[in-house]
């Protein structure tokens, strides 16, 4: 296989963290569906536009056009963005809160793994990114719908990340 762009242990740890977050994230989606009957993210697209729920790009991580440093930056910025989004969902409900808390911690820890790898490679930005403006939710429904949208965007983000990382293992 092509020579590894990153140390194998970093790749293996990152893949494990992606799987850990994916498992937790689908748990969150299942709970939001079971508890609030919000089971179809595609039915919340309009609301997503009005709330301004962002999607994080991973264009530099596709196997066809992989650019290592930019891929790491996109991975970190995406995780940072989704970490902030999940934080904005705090207080969503007692049933979902434990899963949401764990998910936030797992996303933050994975962002640290990426950041440390950038530092090791000497390509880390000079300062940690600052959180862009996050959506504000004016009702319990908006917060729950925002949770479904954020989680489904995160799921596809992780899918792309898993493919990119898996390509090199």
């Amino acid at each position: 296989p092509p020579s590894l762009p990153w140390p194998r242990s970093f790749l293996l740890k990152s893949l494990e963290q992606v799987r850990k977050i994916q498992t937790r994230n689908s748990e969150l989606l299942e709970q939001l569906c079971a508890t609030y009957k919000l089971c179809h993210p595609e039915e919340l697209v309009l609301l997503g536009h009005s709330l301004g729920i962002p999607k994080a790009p991973l264009s530099h991580c596709s196997s066809q056009a992989l650019q290592l440093t930019k891929c790491l930056h996109q991975l970190h910025s995406g995780l940072f963005l989704y970490g902030g989004l999940l934080q904005a969902l705090a207080g969503i409900s007692p049933e979902v809160a434990p899963t949401l808390d764990m998910l936030q911690l797992d996303v933050a820890n994975f962002a640290t793994t990426i950041w440390q790898q950038m530092e090791t490679l000497g390509v880390a930005p000079t300062a940690q990114p600052t959180q862009s403006t996050l959506p504000t939710f004016t009702s319990a429904f908006q917060r729950r719908a925002g949770g479904v949208l954020a989680a489904s965007h995160l799921q596809s983000f992780l899918e792309t990340a898993h493919c990119a990382l898996n390509h090199w293992v």
Binding site: L105, D106, T113
Partner: peptide, 9 residues
């Protein structure tokens, strides 16, 4: 507790 742990470090 989990919130005090930085996993994978």
């Amino acid at each position: 507790a989990r919130k005090h742990l930085l996993l994978y470090q």
